[in-house]
């Protein structure tokens, strides 16, 4: 009985004003709904339909994508690259994030600020930064010339792309991990230590499980960003066989709208599926954009 009474009380607190205000609330949503419907849902539906159209008797765009080793290879390569970048970013950003969240030392805030700035750098700029690091006139080229007598140039390959994607993933991981660390219950660690667990045991048994939701959701976003990142690949060279570049080439060079649409839809669906999967894995924690 007492539970129903309590429940009634709780309901009373939020109760009717909310219901009474609902029509107003719905009106407030109207502009956003209109914009999204007109410029996002409608075009998306169009894109999906377009991808299914036949052209030159070659089958629908989806069939062309799914039956072509070239496109499938590009998709696979993109996925693998995004996955590797995600893992690397989680490792690097995780170590740094935990360190920055847990330790207090002189210059810490500056370090955090510096590390999180590049979060908003656009892909093109990141691409250029990679060129400065590992391009023909880059830092590594100079270093290589001095040390080994040959220029170390890897900006224009998948390695360069990896570096670029890592560059814009790390700040995001650091931010998320720091936030997650702050909400972690420290007494759990102390309890584990008191039970005789060594440092690595605590890391494996307490810290990593505690950070797991943040790691998963942040990893999913890194993956999604890496899947769709076009700017970096574009700057580093259009001969890289990653899907965004492939879409761009199909669209501009061959004007093949059907395949471009189909590829976009497949890429979008893959990305979205990964995000959804991650959401399932961490039901309660909301993704941080």
């Amino acid at each position: 009985m007492s539970s129903t009474v309590l429940k009634a009380h709780n309901v009373a607190a939020g109760g009717l004003l909310k219901r009474r205000l609902r029509p107003t609330a719905a009106w407030a949503l109207a502009p956003a709904a209109a914009v999204l419907a007109a410029f996002w849902l409608l075009p998306l539906a169009h894109l999906i339909v377009l991808g299914g159209q036949q052209r030159d008797g070659a089958g629908s765009g989806y069939w062309q994508v799914l039956s072509s080793p070239q496109y499938l290879g590009s998709l696979a390569q993109t996925c693998v690259l995004a996955a590797v970048v995600t893992l690397a970013a989680l490792l690097v950003g995780g170590i740094t994030g935990v360190f920055l969240a847990r330790q207090r030392f002189f210059g810490r805030t500056t370090l955090v600020a510096l590390l999180t700035f590049p979060l908003a750098f656009p892909g093109v700029v990141v691409g250029f930064l990679v060129i400065l690091l590992a391009g023909r006139q880059g830092l590594f080229a100079m270093l290589g010339l001095k040390l080994a007598g040959e220029r170390w140039v890897f900006a224009y390959s998948l390695a360069g792309l990896f570096l670029g994607y890592l560059y814009f993933s790390i700040p995001r991981v650091i931010l998320t991990i720091m936030a997650a660390c702050e909400s972690l219950d420290r007494s759990l660690e102390e309890a584990a230590h008191s039970l005789g667990a060594g440092h690595w045991r605590v890391v494996c048994d307490v810290i990593i499980p505690g950070l797991a939701p943040a790691l998963v959701s942040c990893g999913a976003i890194c993956f999604a960003t890496s899947m769709g990142a076009f700017g970096t690949a574009f700057t580093l060279g259009t001969q890289l066989n990653v899907t965004p570049v492939a879409i761009y080439n199909v669209f501009t060079n061959y004007a093949n709208f059907t395949v471009a649409a189909a590829l976009s839809v497949v890429l979008g669906a893959l990305t979205w599926a990964v995000l959804l999967l991650a959401r399932r894995m961490v039901k309660q924690s909301r993704t941080v954009l």
């Binding site: 076009f230 899907t243 965004p244 976009s264 979008g268 990305t271």
Partner: peptide, 10 residues
């Protein structure tokens, strides 16, 4: 969440 290129294409 969607690749920007796909949205733009749409």
């Amino acid at each position: 969440a969607m690749p920007g290129l796909a949205s733009a294409l749409a």
